[in-house]
Write a protein that binds this DNA or RNA. Sequence first.
DNA 1: TTCGAATGTTAGTTATTACTAACATACATA
DNA 2: TATGTATGTTAGTAATAACTAACATTCGAA
Lengths: 192, 192
Amino acid sequence: MKQEELGTSDKILSEAIELFHHKGFKSVTMKEIAAAAAVSEMTVFRHFETKLGVLEAAIRKYSYIQPMKKLFEEQIVWDLYEDLKMFAKTYHESMSRNKAISFIAIQERNNMPWITELAEHNPGQLKELLTRYFQDMQAQGKMVAADSAGQATAFMTLNFGYFMSCNPSIKSTDTDAFIENSVQTFARGLRP
Amino acid sequence: MKQEELGTSDKILSEAIELFHHKGFKSVTMKEIAAAAAVSEMTVFRHFETKLGVLEAAIRKYSYIQPMKKLFEEQIVWDLYEDLKMFAKTYHESMSRNKAISFIAIQERNNMPWITELAEHNPGQLKELLTRYFQDMQAQGKMVAADSAGQATAFMTLNFGYFMSCNPSIKSTDTDAFIENSVQTFARGLRP
DNA sequence: TTCGAATGTTAGTTATTACTAACATACATA
DNA sequence: TATGTATGTTAGTAATAACTAACATTCGAA
């Protein structure tokens, strides 16, 4: 295989994960995947052995687990409004990168629970970071003193809800408007 | 069929919708449904003809579309905190009644989009009511004057996110505590 | 007791689908 | 040119699952 062009495996995986995302694992056939990738069905089997193999490879390839800590801490300016906005943006970037994985994880949550752990890795990290951030802010007297974990839960949940409810037709400007609007309310609600 | 006991159809439908909810429509077999309902496979076919027939009947039976308007308006006391709490509770009651439908709607959103409309009927109503409530509160000077539809979206989204998160790293508190906590923040963020 | 409706049982059919085997072809490179 | 690698093609297997048909059984009610 030539190095410059997109390999056959990549083509297959990128089509496969979209199909899994939109139709669910069980509803997608190997024929469909092959057709979408414009290769023969045999080629798919030669590359990934089984249908589950395709899913696993796709998930390995398209789940970006990031070490958020450094990225996050470097951008904090200790202003509630600004930091929440930055946080929400980081969250939505991460989620939209992992969009397919997140949806598949929900669809297959009982059939393949192992996907869930991958999908929840980044959000889990972010929640911890946000909780600690709220603790620090409270200590600095820049926030109302209350259950920081609960506050973090609420903010995470708000953004998760938006992510889950937004259909593909929603533009990034809508996301920006949502962030702007919700962060404003939240920052007002949390400040001392 | 005797009137007092739970009919065969009901037993089948209640097991079927749980199976669809947990495993997804495509992954559930008629044998499974029959076994779960403790009847023979033939009985399922005799009652509902096809597998899709089972789903449709189950959805018809277990989707409670409620006229929220009256229920909602009767309980308003024009205090932001109290009203938001009442609203969130109404929302979660409605969603938990329709939990299976809501999850199936998301799982099958591309295969059977018609389910989505049913699942979104109550939330859609609630959003309208909340938007109008915010407008009224703004007019009364009891709320910060801002985009009421956006505020309603944020609050709805927050509660939807909680409902959807089967995510142990996000959902750490029980529903009442979540409502208490999030409504407190929101009410503070929205008051003038 | 007898009748009938609901259900069970069994033995299918048909379509689909994951997956295999065997052979053919295109094509880049040594 | 020769060779190997990736891919295509074709035919097929085995399992599954939706669905049907025909007959048997249970059981409450007339």
